[in-house]
Design a binder for these strands. Structure first.
Lengths: 259, 259
DNA sequence: GTAGTAATCTCATTATAAGAGATTGATGAA
DNA sequence: TTCATCAATCTCTTATAATGAGATTACTAC
């Protein structure tokens, strides 16, 4: 997390040093021994054990076999809570169900967090989901319908840094070669109300996304992903208008739910 | 979290004070304003804002509309990571799928965390799930097949405190009136290899659970929940042996995966 | 038992978290 | 525009509590 732009050279306080321990638990390395943590973080022995005690007592990590640690139950409970209390999910879920039932697709609700997007709810049609986007999976900000649907609805001042940062990605997927080209594309997206992407994130998958606005400002995106071979122009048009309409309805509910 | 037994009167350090903020986010009250947090926790204004900044920068909370805060994206990502890296889930999932396909039931993998159990994976048959136990939902330790399947396999030294603590619950569901009765029941469960409970957690639901052992010590439980009306003795016997066998297989894999 | 390792404790030192109050920043009204 | 109001951050001093070296204790395995 952090700022995401510069690697944050400010000196960390003790709270941040504790939380830094959690940063190390990744898919590539989900378990750590105290010794490894000490070495990696440069903390002394008593300090590290003190931190581990805090994290263990609050359930964020748990001991596993062999004196190692993994993410703990608190993480699971907090996600459950977040799932149950997120007004975006509550509002979007019926639409995801409806859309995924109507087409062979995966229907997603994706939140935007400054420098990335994160799937918060996902339903796949029982038949042949072209790709899986489970809750919790981060998405790139430089490519794909979701990112574009959000960028298209940002005020120019907020878009420009993103355009600059993801210029290479945006160019490679054909959004535009210059900032002007890109802004022009985004303007068309804005006018259409949906962004469509062909195989930008998952090869062979078509993404159709519309932004969810809160007080006119994009906070999330509703996206339908279908397999490329199913995707003729007619179907894409139809789904586009359904997605646009559903996102609009969710946005209308947003203002009263303080998403 | 915490110790769970006595309400922890030790003075909290700054890390625990920061994490205490997260404790307030509950299903009943998933959003808090800084003002409310200050009042509830007794922190001064600068302190609370400092804490919020740390939590916000690390993604544990996020600002929502109206200057309030909710649990943030980090929670969602960490749960995703935990889901993907938990060897228990990886090992148990095929069994959950198989069992839920074979019977109209909900199949659960439930981890044990000292003073409570927590569902970490759950699959419901498409037809009439009698009750929903999604990932993240805590379960009581005093009642139900899951708790009993774990207690039955604990060494006596570890059972006794639990027996004392949950005496009232255990009595009310008919496990036994005295510690001796309860221990006798647990001994029978241990011999049978499965615990069976009729409507102890959810009225009308039958739970059949077998412990998952790591190095002979229970760490989790595999449970099948079926609707009471489907549950004749024959079926319960059959499912019992299937659950026992599946839990055994998961246990056998446990030792090599440092669950 | 005993070796070998892992985890915790002690305590002096010093860094730093906390708080009161001032200041700045944002938002909306006239 | 200016002003009022509320929210968030900053300043700076003080007292507190986090730190780390090394000793000690608790585990495990043999």
């Amino acid at each position: 997390m952090g700022s995401g732009i510069e690697p944050k050279l400010v000196k960390a306080n003790s709270q941040e040093r504790v939380l830094a321990v959690l940063d190390l638990f990744t898919e590539a390395r989900p378990q750590w021994s105290p010794e490894e943590l000490m070495k990696e973080l440069g903390y002394t022995r008593p300090t590290l054990y003190r931190y581990l005690k805090s994290l263990k007592d609050s359930g964020f990590v748990m001991p596993t076999r062999g004196g190692r640690y993994a993410l703990g139950p608190r993480v699971v409970e907090m996600d459950y809570l977040s799932r149950r209390s997120d007004p975006l999910i509550a509002t979007a879920m019926p639409h995801l169900e409806r859309l995924s039932a109507a087409h062979p697709c995966t229907a997603l609700a994706v939140r935007w967090y400054g420098d990335k997007t994160l799937c918060v709810a996902s339903i796949a049609s029982s038949v042949s989901p072209v790709s899986s986007y489970p809750r919790g999976r981060p998405m790139p900000m430089g490519r794909g319908a979701i990112a574009r649907s959000i960028m298209a609805f940002l005020p120019k001042q907020r878009v420009m840094p993103l355009v600059a940062r993801y210029a290479a990605d945006l160019r490679s997927v054909g959004v535009g070669d210059t900032p002007e080209d890109i802004l022009a594309t985004l303007k068309r997206v804005r006018r259409a109300g949906v962004a469509i992407a062909f195989g930008e994130v998952t090869p062979g998958a078509v993404g159709i996304a519309a932004p969810i606005l809160d007080a006119g400002y994009p906070i999330a995106s509703l996206c339908i992903t279908i397999a490329g071979q199913h995707a003729n122009g007619k179907l894409i048009d139809r789904i586009s208008s359904e997605v646009r309409e559903a996102a609009w309805q969710i946005s209308a509910a947003a203002d009263m739910n303080s998403m």
